[in-house]
Amino acid sequence: DKATNPSNRQEDWEYIIGFCDQINKELEGPQIAVRLLAHKIQSPQEWEAVQALTVLEACMKNCGRRFHNEVGKFRFLNELIKVVSPKYLGDRISEKVKTKVIELLYSWTVALPEESKIKDAYYMLKRQGIVMF
């Protein structure tokens, strides 16, 4: 909550890194973290969602393969798909948030080719015309 607080005036890296550290300390850290992050990323408040995406990106860089495995499941990827798809939340989410979600998905298809479900999700969005470029 502190790392994504809408009243933060800027991204608070103390709390963001604290969140990453907590994931690394706990056995079920990655599973719990992706559920919390999915909820924040779907926030109708743009700034809360943007901060959640920054936290997600920080976790991908700092929390290793256990976290990658969890992000690389359709269970989490479907929550990101809901954000960009007009059939789900897409019409209510800002372009800034949707663009960032697509940029993150693309970056992981390149950086984490072994997480094949990320590619499946990204190319499905391309086929459906949700990712245009």
Binding site: Q31, K73, F74, R75, N78, I81, S85, A121, M124, Q128
Partner: peptide, 15 residues
């Protein structure tokens, strides 16, 4: 509850 060794997943959503 989800456990550390739980590799279960759901299907990819269709948009």
């Amino acid at each position: 509850t989800v456990s550390f060794h739980d590799d279960s997943d759901e299907d990819l959503l269709n948009v």
